[in-house]
Amino acid sequence: MAVIAVASGKSSGVTCSALALALASPRPSLLVEADPAGGTIRAGFLQGEGSAQIGLHRLAAADRQGTLDKEFRQHWVSLDRTHSGQRMLLPGLTDPAQAPSMARTWDSIAVLIGATDSLGYDVIIDAGRIVPQSETRLSTTVYPAPLLRAADVVLLVVRSTQASVVSAAPAARVLREELAHHGTGADALGLLIVEEGSLSSSNIQEWLRVPAYASLEWDPDTADVLTHGQFKKTARGLLRSARSAHDRINEIVTRRRIQLARPAPVQG
């Protein structure tokens, strides 16, 4: 399986992209809403379903009490209406002020995510907008840096517009340095390009000095469904392109795990 973290330097559709990848996975998937700014999927895509007593914000207390292993899966909720267990969500923080309380818990959650991956799930981590500590380090007090360090790949979401690429440049630098010195290597970092504008993939890669790992079709109608839960007839081009992106990302995960002598994800 695969552990895929998704982040941005500025608002570029990270949550929508992460949700699309989770829904498009050919295998069971778990979407972890780790954005320190707070989760939006429960209020948006799920239209307020579920209890506020369930979610990431409860796991810091479980960690302090020594019950995190036991409670981790109790905080998963279904992303689909069939409740089949194939598409699951760990809802995010309900208030950005809760982010500092997670600092000592991220490492433990990273271990549990690794165990979830070994059970046959693709794990997609919505890490939101990065919070740097310096020009070369991620914050470890308010940002889930341990999750990105342990991920098979980290996708920097960027739209194919000049404004988006320019705003992504500092994030690309920080992530490249962070993963090179504290993660599984700088080659874990790749671009997830949302094809909104006219810039070519080759130009974006050259500008940011990061390879493009996958792309997503610009599809505002489906994006509205994923962001706001506005269920209506749509071409679902975004989800089709997310399935293609998933195939490409898993090829990269397979190659990196072989290089790092880690178990390769199951294909199919």
Rank of each mutant, 00 (worst) to 15 (best):
Val194Asn: 15
Glu195Thr: 08
Glu195Leu: 06
Glu196Ala: 06
Gly197Lys: 06
Gly197Trp: 08
Ser198His: 12
Leu199Gln: 04
Ser200Gln: 15
Ser200Arg: 08
Ser201Arg: 15
Ser201Tyr: 06
Ser202Phe: 08
Ser202Thr: 11
Asn203Ser: 11
Ile204Lys: 03
Ile204Glu: 05
Ile204Gly: 01
Glu206Thr: 02
Glu206Asn: 10
Trp207Gln: 11
Trp207Asn: 14
Trp207Lys: 15
Arg209Thr: 11
Val210Glu: 03
Ala212Asp: 13
Ala212Leu: 06
Ala212Met: 14
Tyr213Phe: 13
Tyr213Ala: 04
Ala214Asp: 05
Ser215His: 14
Leu216Asp: 08
Asp219Ser: 01
Pro220Lys: 01
Pro220Trp: 05
Thr222Glu: 10
Ala223Val: 04
Ala223Gln: 12
Asp224Phe: 05
Asp224Gly: 04
Val225Ser: 02
Val225Phe: 11
Thr227Ala: 12
His228Glu: 02
His228Cys: 01
His228Ala: 11
Gly229Gln: 09
Gly229Glu: 09
Gln230Ile: 15
Phe231Tyr: 10
Phe231Asp: 09
Lys232Pro: 05
Lys232Ser: 15
Lys232Ile: 14
Thr234Phe: 05
Thr234Leu: 08
Thr234Pro: 07
Thr234Asp: 08
Ala235Leu: 13
Ala235Lys: 15
Ala235Arg: 14
Arg236Ser: 10
Arg236Cys: 08
Arg236Leu: 09
Arg236Ala: 04
Arg236Gln: 08
Gly237Asn: 12
Gly237Cys: 07
Gly237Ile: 00
Leu238Gly: 02
Leu239Thr: 01
Arg240Asp: 12
Ser241Asp: 07
Ser241Tyr: 14
Arg243Asn: 01
Ala245Val: 00
Ala245Thr: 01
His246Asp: 07
Asp247Cys: 07
Asp247Met: 12
Arg248Gln: 05
Ile249Trp: 02
Ile249Asp: 10
Asn250Phe: 12
Glu251Ser: 11
Ile252Tyr: 10
Ile252Leu: 14
